[in-house]
Structure formats: structure tokens, C-alpha cells
Design a protein around this nucleic acid. Structure first.
Lengths: 111, 111
DNA sequence: TGAAGACTTGAAGAGTTCTTCAACTCTACA
DNA sequence: TGTAGAGTTGAAGAACTCTTCAAGTCTTCA
């Protein structure tokens, strides 16, 4: 397997690696949304949100279309929902594992 | 949805966001492997690989077990394979979209 | 036309991440 | 015991990323 491909995959995951970007993708799963709504839901500085939206746009995972004075964002692919679903499952597994360790630690504590 | 959860998801994706780490996860899909083999396959400085393995270990997505003088790494969950599969599909979509744009640009060029 | 609203962009500074090099731990086995 | 091999860890510096603040563009509507 060529390095550039791993590079591309890594960049793809890094693109997903920000709480605001994840939140935007999750919000867009219910359909296209104007920036105004995203802003209201997420509650951060407009310029900060805009910067994160730019990252998503550049990767091609969302598109922006202007409608009058508002800009509407949308997912470009339905597969994103599945990706987030599987990721949730894996993450749940990791956190469960950590919890298990924590429980063992507490058990030791009590002994 | 709580912020800390988005934070956790973002950290999860950031953990995946490095070419060497992706490569390791892909290699481990075929079963546990000693560091020696990973090193031979990937071909980077041992200390650099070790640092990336530490990131994976910390997240809990792999485990390391010592066997004599070698250390063997393994995936903790089979779901990782599916995650990578879905990610591949989404990434393919993004790259296809970029290619389409490129084709349109070339079309314009020729006009 | 020009003022206001909705976003985006650029620059600067703080905080992260990655690589390299050197030093260190652990196990085997001479 | 002590030397070698296999990995890991720590420190330092270069390269990115994120936030904030200020300034910019675009579109509507008075």
C-alpha cells in the first residue's frame, strides 16, 4: 500500500478531529442547515465556526450554497452518517474498556 | 448532546489521524504482530514508530503484550476493520468529487 | 446609493504534535 | 554477572492548528 494513500486517510481523519466539526456533521445529518442555525446550536464565535466550516468545505465533505444573505451547508454523502455510527460503536468499546480498568483499580483499592 | 462527548469523538478521530497509525491498524487487521514486523513493513525510525504505538495504546485501540524480548501488538476490537472500510468508502467519494471538479476545470481550459 | 446584516478571511499568539537524538529498561544468554 | 538486542521514553525544536480580533465581501432593502 502506497504512502500517499495512508497520508490521504490520515488527513481525512484529522479533518474529522475537532469537536465543532463533529457537531456540525451530526447536525447536518438531519438535512441542510443555514450557518445561523449551526451558530445558534453550537454557540461559539462566528469566525471560529466559519474557520471550521472552511475545513469541512475544503475536504469536500460538505457543500455551501448561498441563498440570499444566508449560507446553507449540506452533507455531500449519506455515508457520513454510517461512518459516525460505526465510530460511535468503536469509541463505546474503548470507553468500556477504560471503565473496566477503572473498576479493577477500585477493586484493588478496597482490598 | 453534551460537549464532552463531542470532545471524546474528536479525540478519537485525531488519534486515527496519522499515516503511520493508520498503517499499523491496517496491518493488525491480519492478526497480532510484533513491533519488529511493523518496523520492517513501515520502515521508519524505531523511536518514531514507538511514539505512534504509544498513542494507539493510550487510546485503548490496541494492546501490547511482551513475549520474551519482543512486544506484540493487537487490535482490541474487530469493529476497527469496519470503521476503516466505511472511511475508505467516504474518502473515495470525496476524492471522486474532487476529480469531477478537476475534469470540469480541464473542460473549461480546452474551451 | 448606502447602511446593516450574515458570513468569511487574514494576522498574530498560544498550544499541540511530530521527528530526532540520546539515554534508559527489560530480557536472554554467553 | 555483564553484554547485546528489542523497544520505550524524554527533551528540544520545527511545523501545524485553533482562537480571537479586525477588516473584508456580498446581498438586501430603505
Amino acid at each position: 500500500m502506497p504512502l500517499p494513500l495512508h497520508q490521504a486517510k490520515a488527513e481525512f481523519f484529522r479533518m474529522l478531529g475537532h469537536p465543532v466539526r463533529i457537531r456540525v456533521l451530526e447536525l447536518l445529518q438531519d438535512g441542510p442547515k443555514p450557518v445561523r442555525d449551526l451558530l445558534a446550536d453550537i454557540g461559539i464565535e462566528a469566525s471560529s465556526l466559519s474557520a471550521q466550516l472552511a475545513v469541512l468545505r475544503r475536504s469536500g465533505i460538505v457543500t455551501a450554497t448561498r441563498d440570499g444573505t444566508t449560507v446553507v451547508y449540506a452533507l455531500t454523502s449519506d455515508d457520513v452518517a454510517e461512518l459516525l455510527r460505526v465510530a460511535r460503536r468503536v469509541l463505546a468499546g474503548l470507553l468500556a474498556g477504560q471503565n473496566e480498568l477503572l473498576a479493577m483499580l477500585r477493586e484493588e483499592e478496597r482490598a
